[in-house]
Amino acid sequence: MSQITWLGPQDPFPTPSHNTDPDANVPGLIAVSDRIYPGQLLQAYQKGIFPWYSDNQPVLWWSPDPRMVLVPKNFKCSESLRKKIRQFCQDPQCEITVDDDFGAVIRACATSSRKDQDGTWITHEIMDAYTTFHEQGHAHSIALKEHGELIGGLYCVALGRMVFGESMFSYKPNASKIALAALSAWCIQNQVAMIDCQQETAHLRSLGAAPISREEFLRQLQISLNPSNIELPWTFDKNILTYWL
């Protein structure tokens, strides 16, 4: 009988298999824990595993097959989005800040409603864990502002030359798309081969993401985890968007 691993504070994650899951009734679920223990996020991402659960649940750790990814150069920048990007770049009241507003961005992602996904999965525990991850230099935020007010953005994780997209939000139409366009352009500039989108949604497909097998994802991940010369902290601004113009 199959069994999903229950992790204690010092237990290592199982290595995801491209052949089978621990429980065929819950495909992609790799492990469970009482909480997110210190050091667990880094270990999980290095193995292609991420947490996704709701309040009043244990922490559920996933490695889905297939895996949704966005090759940065395949980002679909439509003519209408290109027009919005041009307007954003030309407006002196509009700006992009990177890693200055991580707490505000993750809170906005947690409280924003969306068609494809329930924002409530970003629990207080998730916010605390990823804020610590950010302080350690592994998690990043991209915030779009207009007249100094937050209008959209995203947060992500970056290890070596691998970027893992986590969540986006928009208070104004197209703001999250512009944030993703900025991240994609930065990835192209820094030879990042793909952005992990984790799970398939119609919205991500419309922006150029596509599924690949878990086997291929894990292969690419191990290549991308090699040390890189990407400079920290991230320092780009809205001028990165001119790649799409």
Rank of each mutant, 00 (worst) to 15 (best):
S63P: 04
P92A: 09
V71G: 15
V98T: 08
W52S: 04
I30Q: 13
I85V: 02
Q90T: 04
E95N: 05
D118L: 00
P58G: 11
D99L: 01
D65I: 04
Q93F: 15
P64D: 14
D65N: 05
V59D: 08
R67E: 04
M127Q: 06
S54Q: 12
S54A: 12
I122Y: 08
D118R: 02
C89Y: 02
D65R: 07
A110C: 02
M68G: 08
T120F: 09
H124D: 12
Y53D: 13
E125G: 14
V105D: 01
Q117E: 06
G48F: 10
L42I: 03
P72G: 10
V32N: 04
S113P: 06
L42E: 14
R107N: 05
I30A: 07
S113Y: 12
S113W: 08
M68T: 14
G103H: 06
D100I: 06
P72M: 08
G28Y: 09
A44F: 11
D34W: 15
L41N: 02
V71S: 08
W121A: 05
L41V: 03
V32R: 00
L41H: 01
C77Y: 12
D99F: 00
K115G: 03
V69I: 15
K115V: 05
F50V: 01
C89N: 00
Q43W: 00
M127R: 09
V69G: 13
K73C: 14
F88W: 07
C94F: 13
V26Q: 07
V32K: 01
R107H: 05
L81K: 10
R67K: 15
W61P: 13
F102Y: 10
D91W: 12
N56Y: 14
E125Q: 09
D55N: 15
P66L: 03
A31K: 05
S54V: 07
S112F: 04
L29H: 00
D116G: 13
I96N: 01
E95Y: 04
D34A: 12
V32E: 04
V71C: 11
K115L: 06
G39M: 06
L81Y: 15
E125V: 13
R82T: 09
D34V: 06
F50M: 04
H124T: 11
D99W: 00
C89R: 02
A110S: 02
G48E: 05
I85A: 09
Y45I: 09
D116C: 13
M127C: 13
Q57C: 06
R82N: 11
P58H: 05
R107Q: 03
P38I: 01
W52Q: 00
Q87I: 07
I106H: 01
N56S: 15
P27M: 01
S78D: 04
P92I: 01
P51C: 09
A108Q: 01
E79M: 15
K83H: 12
V71I: 15
L29N: 04
I36L: 07
P64Q: 14
P92T: 05
T123A: 10
L81H: 09
Y45P: 02
D55S: 12
